[in-house]
Amino acid sequence: MTGYIAKIKKISKQILDEGTVDMVIGFRKGTLALMNEPCFAKTSKAVDDFVWDGNCGINLANYLTSRKEKIGIIAKGCDSRNIITHIIENKIDRDQLFIIGVPCKGMLDRHLLSAKFPDEILNVSESEDAVIIKGADYEETLPRKEVLQENCSVCIHRNPVIYDELAADLVEEQADLDRFEAVRKIEALNAEDKWQYFEDLLATCIRCYACRNACPLCYCPTCFVDESKPQWVGKGQDTTDIRTFHFLRAFHDAGRCTDCGACVRACPMGIDVRMFTKKLEKDCFESFGWEAGLSLDARPPLDTFNPDDPNDFIL
């Protein structure tokens, strides 16, 4: 995956020079380890700043919402699924986009790694199967699959599902995974323990809304938590209000979430907010056989009625 960047740059420069697009959205190297910064290039010179490695976990589909230009965009599997969702929801036109597909082998879990190495990580380098972490007075090599974001380790759509050109050959998809193990663990708890689980999960939430704002699905002009007429939810640090924000946001993502993990990656407190959305992803999959963002032609399950829809919850 580390070798993709030459091809990414080549394609980006070509589509800029030929005038196919006005800008290309990608990543540039961050100023600290495990971080890259989303950026745009409007000239082929600016493309030289682009990087591609395991620290490109932010979902770039988030930067497309309602843009008017012709845009080239670098898309991993999850990004491409959110691009499809964006197109279905009329947030961008397919004709505006030139999608540079990037077959992905998973992104590095910055929360996990910085917890594992309390002494500042100064440099991270990657090979196909290993990650080398360097600090001022240590160096450690870890198997790549052990330090992936959790959503990446249970991902079954690493290859982009929509693209105009690929940056590399498609990768083998992971199979025989238990994608919902974490959800089932919560499902097995009794009601009180479930409540406590989410209380503990959200205990350090500062309500900065990084999870919401990093999410390509959260593009409402005014989010329900920001509404004041009527005011749906209190704006302070009361735990009821914090929880209301999180679970209602998850509901709004039902049948749309691609489990890209941008929310968790963005959270400054490292809260695993996927534990809300993952349940809805599981329900949508089990009830409707639905996975979001796989096709431009299928309507999402909460958008359609089918006489076969499960209705055993109706008394």
């Binding site: 910064e37 989303p38 988030n62 809304y209 704002n213 400054p268």
Partner: peptide, 16 residues
């Protein structure tokens, strides 16, 4: 434009 492009307008920087 270059500085602000990546920003997702969360409150992290101001809260910390």
């Amino acid at each position: 434009e270059d500085i602000s492009f990546a920003c997702i307008n969360c409150g992290t920087c101001t809260y910390v």
